[in-house]
């Protein structure tokens, strides 16, 4: 019989953690795994500190076997990351792990200020187009016409504005070294996004500037779709609005 090689958990996966509190089909676990993979391949587990914000993305920090501040005050993830990075005189690799609400709604000012300062941190924003933890309300990343519990008729731009495109927004900031958007809905996208994340972490290792990776992430419970339908929805609805790719990759900041 042919032996099938089963891929084990990444080395920096947290093995002792209690049962995960994420919903079936939720991709936050995949985002955490992706981070662990990238960290393992760069060999930086022992030197990385993860800061997670409030929201389902905050749970990701439970899953990594790295020093972590799990769920700092809502939206202040980049500020806490800044504090740790500077307190240790730039020595550790600091990752701010955020959801879309944490990053670009309540935390928009913190992200923009960190980008203006060229803070040497890596920001991961999981985009699931809604507020997952609180039951699926409108997020800055909610698509137009998308039904959420606070846009019951669908997102109307006249009332609730337009979707936020964060990597694109960060491009003109001089302090930003890297900005990309990936997805984890297919193995190919997983591998591609891992390359983005490794490139982002490398910018921090090389001390160039702020690096940012958005990752489209399924939320079956609040999208009211099965996990498989969610992967299709990401392909058909989210990726057209949020194109994947690198938007900025600077080797130095002048």
């Amino acid at each position: 019989m042919e032996k099938i090689k089963v891929r084990g958990a990444p080395k920096s996966w947290q093995r002792s953690t209690s049962p995960l509190t994420i919903c079936p089909g939720c991709q936050h676990g995949v985002v955490a795994e992706l981070l662990c993979d990238a960290v393992d391949e760069l060999g930086i587990q022992g030197n990385t500190i993860v800061i997670s914000g409030i929201g389902c993305a905050g749970i990701d920090a439970f899953m990594v076997d790295m020093d972590a501040f799990i769920m700092c005050p809502h939206g202040r993830t980049c500020d806490v990351a800044t504090g740790i990075k500077r307190a240790l005189f730039g020595k550790p690799i600091v990752v701010a792990l955020q959801g879309d609400g944490d990053c670009i709604a309540i935390g928009a000012g913190s992200l923009i200020s960190a980008a203006l300062r060229g803070e040497k941190i890596t920001v991961i924003m999981a985009n699931n187009a809604n507020y997952g933890t609180t039951g699926g309300q409108l997020a800055p990343t909610t698509l137009l016409d998308q039904v959420t519990s606070t846009t019951p008729e669908g997102r109307d731009p006249g009332l609730a504005g337009y979707p936020a495109h964060v990597p694109e927004m960060l491009v003109p900031f001089r302090g930003v070294a890297y900005a990309a958007r990936g997805a984890v809905n297919t193995p190919a996208n997983y591998q591609r996004t891992k390359r983005y994340l490794k490139a982002a972490l490398q910018k921090q290792i090389d001390n160039i500037g702020l690096s940012f990776v958005e990752i489209l992430s399924a939320c079956p419970a609040n999208w009211h779709r099965t996990p498989v339908e969610c992967l299709k929805w990401i392909e058909e609805k989210m990726i057209p609005e949020y194109p994947l790719g690198e938007f900025k990759n600077a080797d130095r900041i002048d």
């Binding site: 700092c72 806490v80 504090g83």
Partner: peptide
């Protein structure tokens, strides 16, 4: 929150 981060680093 920067104090929270820096203080966390000891």
């Amino acid at each position: 929150n920067m104090l929270l981060g820096a203080g966390s680093a000891g």
